[in-house]
Design a protein around this nucleic acid. Structure first.
Lengths: 177, 177
DNA sequence: TCACTCATGTAATTGGTTACATGATTAG
DNA sequence: CTAATCATGTAACCAATTACATGAGTGA
C-alpha cells in the first residue's frame, strides 16, 4: 500500500482504531524503510501523481508476527486488540483463540471494576459515575457475548470459511431519528 | 478534588475515558489556577502529606457548562461522550436527551460505514477487515440499544430518580474461563 | 474559475509520557 | 528493613497534530 492508501484504509475503521494524520504516516513509513522492514516501488502512471507502494519484507513479516503473537498485556487498549483482529489472517486457529481469551479476561476485569460503581450507596458524590458506568457495563456485556460466541464457533468447527457473523440487525438501523 | 484524587477517579474509568499521568494532571491544574477557573486550598492534616484541594470557581463553572452543552461534532470521540455522561448532573433533561440523540446519530453512522465491509465480495484483499468490522458492528448495535433504551425512559417519565439501568447480568461474569 | 481529490512530504508546535526528586507514614 | 501508599512537582523526551508547500487532474 501507499501512505495515502493506508490513511483511507484506517479512515474507514477510524471508530475502532483511530486514523493517524499524514504527518505521522509518512515519517513512519520512512522509518520502516530505514530499518528495512518494508521496501518501496515508485509507480508512475502518468496523468496521476506518482505513488510509492510499500511492501513488507521478510524481516518485516517476522517483526510483525512477533508483535501479533505478543499476549495482550493487562491494561492494553481496545486498539491493540482490534489491530490484531485486522491482521487475523496471519494468526493460527489456536493463536486466535488465545487472543480472544486474553481479551475476554480483560473485558471481564473491566466489567468487574465498573459493576460496583452502579450499585454504590445513593447520596454519594460518586453518583455522578452512575450513567457512565452503566454505559460501560452495557458495552462490556456486548463484547463478552461477541467473544464467547466466536470462541464457541471456533471450538466447534475447525474455522469454516465465512462462519463469522454475530447478531444480524434489521436494515434501516442507520441515521435513526 | 486534589490531583491525586483526580487520578484515582479516572483510573477506575480508565477503560472508558483513559487516565492521564501525574505529569499531565498537575500542570493542567496549575494552568486552570492561572486562568482562575479553579481555586486551591491547602489541607495540612499532619501525619499525612499536605493535600491541595482544587475547587471550581464561578468562571470555571460557566466555562465547563459551555463545553458540556457544545454539540458532539462529527467524528467526536467516545471519550467526549463519556466525559459528558460523567458530568450529566449538570445537564438538564432536554440537554441530556439532545446529547443522547447526537451520540445515536454518530453511532448509527459508524454502523452504516462498517456494515458494507462485512458483506463485501469474498476473495477481496479486504476480507482482512471482516472480523474487525463484525466486532465493530456488535459493539455499535449494543450501544444503539442502550441509547434507545435510555431515550425511551427519558421521554416516558420525567427522569425518575434512579430509573437508569440496562440489562442486568447474572453474577459470575468476572474472570471467565 | 474555483474547489476538490489525488499524492507526497517537511517544520513548528503541542500534548503527553517517562523518569526523576522529595519526604513522611504504614504494613509485611 | 524494605516496600508500598500518599502526595506533589519538574524536566527531558517523544509522538503526534497542525499547518504549510507542491503540483496535476477533475468536475461544477
Amino acid at each position: 500500500m501507499s501512505g495515502y492508501d493506508i490513511k483511507q484504509f484506517l479512515d474507514r475503521l477510524v471508530w475502532l482504531v483511530g486514523s493517524p494524520s499524514f504527518g505521522a504516516i509518512y515519517p513512519a513509513l520512512h522509518a520502516l524503510l530505514r530499518d528495512e522492514l518494508v521496501s518501496v516501488e515508485t509507480q508512475t502512471c502518468d496523468s496521476k501523481p506518482p505513488r510509492k507502494i510499500y511492501t513488507i519484507t521478510e524481516t518485516g513479516e517476522s517483526a510483525l508476527d512477533e508483535w501479533l503473537h505478543q499476549p495482550l498485556v493487562s491494561g492494553a487498549s481496545t486498539r491493540a486488540f482490534v489491530m490484531r483482529l485486522i491482521l487475523v489472517s496471519r494468526l493460527s486457529h489456536d493463536a486466535l483463540a488465545a487472543l480472544l481469551r486474553q481479551r475476554r479476561n480483560q473485558v471481564a476485569e473491566q466489567y468487574a471494576t465498573l459493576n460496583p460503581l452502579t450499585r454504590e450507596p445513593s447520596g454519594t458524590a460518586d453518583r455522578s459515575q452512575y450513567l457512565a458506568s452503566d454505559y460501560g457495563l452495557a458495552i462490556a456485556s456486548a463484547e463478552l457475548a461477541w467473544l464467547d460466541g466466536l470462541l464457541e464457533t471456533l471450538s466447534g468447527r475447525p474455522l469454516a470459511e465465512g462462519a463469522w457473523a454475530s447478531q444480524p440487525m434489521t436494515e434501516e438501523t442507520g441515521k435513526g431519528q
